[in-house]
Amino acid sequence: MSIIKTQNLTYLYSTGTPFEIAAIKDVNIEIEQGELVGIIGHTGSGKSTLIQHLNGLLKPTYGKVYIDGQDIWEDKDTIKSVRFKVGLCFQYPEYQLFEETVYKDIAFGPKNMGLDYSEIHRRVHDAASHVGLSEAHLSKSPFDLSGGEKRRAAIAGVMAMQPKVLILDEPTSGLDPKGRDTILNMIKNYRDSTKSTVLIVSHSMEDIAKLATKVLVLNESSVAMYGTVDEIFSKSEEIIQMGLDVPPITRVFMGLAKHGVNVSGQIYTLEQGKVELSKLFAGKCTQGVEGT
C-alpha cells in the first residue's frame, strides 16, 4: 500500500470571485513507503501548496489526500495527528527557532505530541545524532549556532516527531556547497537508517539526480511527470521545454546525441558520464585500430 496517495487533489485561491486561480489542480500521485522523492518545478508551480496538503495544513478544495490509506480529512478533529505522521520542514527553517536551548527547541514537536519525558529525551538525542549535533550543541542557545547548524537544529525539530514521511522544502537554499553537502548526506543517512519516506523540494537538478529514487515534476499547477530518476531524465528535452534545468552533464550528452553520437539518454551524474565516455572512446579507438 502506498504511504501517500492523492485523488484529484485541487486547491483554488479566491474561490467565488472572478480571480479564482488553481494553485494545484487534479493531482493524482501515489508514493510508496521508503522512496526518496525529489519534487521539482518553478516557483509558483504548486510545490508549496502540494506539500502543505500532505500534512493537512491546507484543506483541499476538491479531492482527497490519503496517508497510510487513511483519508486525512475524514475526521476533522484528528488532523493534528497527521502533522506528526507527515513532518513538514519549511524553507529557511532556522527562522522558526525560538527556545532558550537547542534541546528545548527540538523537543517542541515531541512535547506537542504529549509524549512522556523519557521518550522526549530519547527522541531529541536521536534527532540530534541524525543531524550531527553534539551534546554541547544541545545546551546552547539556538541563536548562538552557525548558519548551517541552525538549519540542522531546525530539521532535527521535525525529525524528532519521528514522522513516517519527512518533507523538506528546499533544505539547502542559501547554504554554501559544504553546508549543502552536509545536509544532503544527512538526509540520505536519515532515510537509510529509519527507512522512512522522504520528499525533497529542490531547484537543484544535480542534487535531485544524486539523491532521489523518484522525481515528481510539477508544471503549471499540475503533475507533469512522475517516475524514476532514469525515466524522468530520459525526457530531459521536455524538462528543458518547461523552462527547468537539467544537470550540466545531461546537457553535454544531449548535445552529443544531437551531433549524431550514439550515447545513452539517461546520463545525469558525473559517474555515469565517465562510464559512458569510457565506452564511447574505447569503442571508437578499437574501430580506429581496425581501420588501419
Binding site: N55, L57, R83, G87, V158
Partner: peptide, 8 residues
C-alpha cells in the same frame, strides 16, 4: 505554519 507543522 511552521509551528503548526510541529504540532503547535
Amino acid at each position: 505554519n511552521a509551528q503548526k507543522a510541529r504540532g503547535a
